[in-house]
Design a protein around this nucleic acid. Sequence first.
DNA 1: TCTCTGAAGAAAATTATTATCATTTTTTTT
DNA 2: AAAAAAAATGATAATAATTTTCTTCAGAGA
Lengths: 149, 149
Amino acid sequence: MSDRRERLARLDRLMGRLKEHGLRMTPQRAAILRALVMDPNHPSVETLHRRLVADYPNMSLATVYKTMNLLKELGEVRELEFSSRDNRFDGFIPQPHPHLICTRCGRIIDPDVPELKDLIENLVHATGFDVQSHRLDFYGLCPSCLKKD
Amino acid sequence: MSDRRERLARLDRLMGRLKEHGLRMTPQRAAILRALVMDPNHPSVETLHRRLVADYPNMSLATVYKTMNLLKELGEVRELEFSSRDNRFDGFIPQPHPHLICTRCGRIIDPDVPELKDLIENLVHATGFDVQSHRLDFYGLCPSCLKKD
DNA sequence: TCTCTGAAGAAAATTATTATCATTTTTTTT
DNA sequence: AAAAAAAATGATAATAATTTTCTTCAGAGA
């Protein structure tokens, strides 16, 4: 269960997924996959690209974007969306609280989540983080959209 | 406990916060605050602006942005950030899972949250939503940044 | 009312991401 | 092995939300 072995297995899997979709394994793609798989953190496209140009001086930012989008479409990678595009506001409750968001109609409700307080306490205990805030969004279909199926 | 009264109280508060910071109460700002406070949903800047131009034909989008940013700075409004700017990736675990994000050094870790399964079940039960996915980010200071204080 | 600083508005700038397209590379076919 | 077809790369342009800039205007205290 060496970390390195795990990462290489993951690399294999990613290469396999691309191949099984008839996509070509180019040197650039191989390098991007390697960089992704070897990254211990949660890199941005920018970060990956910065590292890649060291070895591949004319690696294009567009190529990194395209490859990451492929992986996203294959469900092999999850994008953590930060900051600002078409943002919405909580006008009433500035304190952080969970949201329940309907992916069909866009409705957002503020559910009660009584378990939250304990959950955060446990998290603080287990990790040593000082948790100060959060962003908790649950996605799904609201009752009225469910009826329309 | 009329809804309207609550909203007017909130409007008062927002006006007070601006005033106590030496900021002027202009017709535009008053209108933006009113639109925000009366909105039953989680409006975007775009949405607010679209409504405001009906009554204030030369209300500028920049003005709405500026006012919302003021409220954000005062902690009176919370921005729900969707989609794409400087995004980062989970390269290893494409399934949704909680993140613990250090607001100082940017480190992101994937904590265990054993309570999550039950929490979601309860949520489904209480709201009638079919919860299919989530985005759970906890923000705070990591142990090593805490030490540096 | 006068003054002066903050605010509004229009337009330009910024920035992350996506699209375009000519060129190059890879794969398939002859 | 060469030619043809398909697909990917990379440079650049396009896009779109947000921010900045700068000139003009207006609110609030003297």
